[in-house]
Simulated assay, not measured.
Amino acid sequence: MALAISLGRRGLGRTWPNPAVGCVITQGTRIVGRGATRPGGRPHAERVALEQAGAAARGATAYVSLEPCAHHGRTSPCCEALAAAGVARVVSAIEDPDPRVAGRGHAMLRAAGITLEVGLMADEAVAAQKGFLTRIGQGRPMLTLKLATSFDGRIATGTGESRWITGPGARHLTHALRARHDAILVGAGTVRADDPMLNVRGLGAVNQPLRLVASAALDLPLGRLADSARTLPVWLLHGPEAAIDRRAAWAEAGARLIEVPAPGGRIDPAAMMVRLGAEGLTRVFCEGGGQLAASLLAAGLVDEAVGFTAGLALGAGGRAAIGTLPDAALADHPRFRLAETRAVDGDVFHRWVRA
């Protein structure tokens, strides 16, 4: 099961709107088939593993990191494929909460006479499926907030200089984290200041995430994002008051425009995330500035926070990593639990999970 979960994780950022599942098929102590959900969400992990196992699947045990699907799409249900292959036993980590499945896959396996065990390494499977489970359960993608700061919590000097606070090792790991998400999100200020590409670099041929920009007024320069929008998708989340000529210019460049509520001239972060969930996104990686970070934190939308802390101080004149948050008692501010920390080429990487 640990291998199945690990195989599934390799698909993170590449299988949305489907979950990234892993499957391992064994005969005794011998692995005869293994598979992960392929890019784009098809074929599912079980079918990849069954194809590799061939006739050796008969009488075998299949370890699956998520309940096999029970609904007809472009192919028949995976639980039917497992039964047809003659698999004798299925060990499933967790039930799939998708209403199209939600225990039906497990029921179909039992009805086919297959021995079923559910719950092995459930906590690890839930962690690996966090994006998919958040979309199904809350109607929005999981959100990871990333910050690269000085040790006194600044993301730039007072004049806006920020390249580079952290070192090349931290930047390389950031690109690896980007690749494990469906989309990268920034705000208008980041686009105006940095003219970023928001792609994955230095990792060879990888699936590129969507590039998302939250800008209520669409007051953005037509820079590198516009120049590359026809080859690397760009989605612009804008308010209803965005000017028609700005919409037309970005549409002409090849960007997709998505209107979301923007009360007071600011994008409603909760409505934005629900819309992204409706579009099928499961994992979003936010690298925006302090104001976008503050709005997402204030709305309770940050599921994980990853930080890179460098060994320098920029002082009170530097730009804060997080913008102004609503006044609240200390106990009412969102609390995160440290999940991981390590040194990365002289910087410190730390990952926090919402408590």
Score class of each variant (00 low, 15 high):
Ala188Ser: 14
Val90Asn: 01
Ala176Ile: 12
Ala128Asp: 00
Val32Ser: 00
Leu225Tyr: 11
Arg135Met: 15
Arg283Tyr: 08
Ala313Met: 14
Val206Gln: 07
Tyr63Leu: 15
His44Asp: 13
Arg211Asn: 05
Val32Thr: 09
Arg192Asp: 13
Ser215Cys: 07
Gly169Asp: 07
Ala62Arg: 01
Ala93Tyr: 01
Phe285Met: 02
Ala214Lys: 02
Arg47Met: 13
Leu145Val: 03
Ala328Leu: 07
Val64Tyr: 05
Arg335Gln: 15
Ile5Lys: 02
Asp123Leu: 10
Gly300Ser: 06
Ala45Gly: 11
Ala329Glu: 15
Thr174Ala: 14
Gly54Asp: 05
Leu281Cys: 07
Val48Asn: 01
Arg211His: 08
Pro77His: 04
Gly59Gln: 11
Glu287His: 10
Phe336Ala: 04
His238Glu: 10
Glu304Trp: 08
Ala81Tyr: 03
Val91Arg: 00
Ala299Val: 14
Arg10His: 13
Met1Lys: 06
Val200Lys: 01
Thr324Gly: 06
Arg283Pro: 01
Val344Ser: 07
Arg247Val: 13
Gln129Trp: 10
Gln52Ala: 15
Arg58His: 12
Asp96Thr: 10
Trp164Gly: 07
Ala70Leu: 04
Val91Thr: 02
Thr75Phe: 13
Met142Gln: 15
Arg163Thr: 12
Ala122Pro: 06
Leu218Asn: 05
Gly35Ser: 05
Arg178Glu: 05
Trp250Asp: 01
Gly187Glu: 04
Asp182Thr: 13
Val21Tyr: 01
Arg34Glu: 15
Asp332Val: 04
Gly153Ile: 09
Val213Asp: 04
Thr75Trp: 11
Gly137Ala: 15
Gly346Pro: 05
Pro17Asn: 10
Arg224Ile: 13
Leu50Cys: 11
Gly8Cys: 05
Gly139Ile: 08
Arg100Pro: 00
Arg171Gln: 15
Ala343Glu: 07
His350Ile: 13
Gly289Phe: 08
Gly73Ser: 14
Gly54Ala: 04
Ile114Tyr: 02
Ala320Pro: 06
